[in-house]
């Protein structure tokens, strides 16, 4: 399917950018005429993925995060969030609810939330190289 529109942004892994990234993704999605609930879902999923880059990919340094979004003719928005950080050894395990390496400041629910707030979630990771999270969500067409 050919994309109708796209954008790309890059920012350092500073926590102040979490709000910026989720708002940017929501603003871009706004052209599909989403409901407030649909926008809330997009914001939440993006916030989880970006926070993971900041907390887990680059635990004690600043690194680069790239967010790309595309819109397809069937009203689907696709969002890709990429880091070049430490990567995940076992993705299947990391995606399980309550699995965390983050201690008591994390609940291990990020991937579970991304999954339940989007239609598809793909996670590709290489230890020592980085992680790419791809999410797709179809925005309902309004009358």
């Amino acid at each position: 399917m050919k994309e109708k529109n796209s954008f790309k942004m890059e920012f350092p892994s500073k926590s102040v950018n979490e709000a910026f990234a989720r708002s940017a993704a929501a603003c871009f999605t706004a052209q599909l005429d989403p409901t407030l609930d649909e926008l809330g879902d997009i914001k939440t999923a993006v916030s989880e993925a970006v926070t993971n880059c900041i907390v887990h990919a680059y635990p004690d340094s600043l690194g680069k995060i790239c967010l790309k979004a595309r819109i397809f003719p069937d009203n689907t928005v696709e969002i890709k969030i990429k880091d070049w950080g430490r990567g995940i050894d076992d993705v299947a395990k990391a995606r399980e609810p309550m699995y965390t390496t983050g201690g008591d400041e994390r609940s291990g629910m990020g991937f579970t939330i991304m999954e339940s707030f989007t239609d598809t979630l793909k996670v590709v990771s290489k230890p020592g190289k980085g992680t790419l999270v791809t999410m797709r969500r179809k925005i309902a067409v309004k009358e």
Binding site: A19, R22, G40, R106, M109, G110
Partner: peptide, 13 residues
């Protein structure tokens, strides 16, 4: 106006 999984940890703690 917004909460993500970081809020779950705050509630649990």
């Amino acid at each position: 106006t917004f909460m993500d999984s970081s809020g779950i940890a705050v509630v649990l703690k």
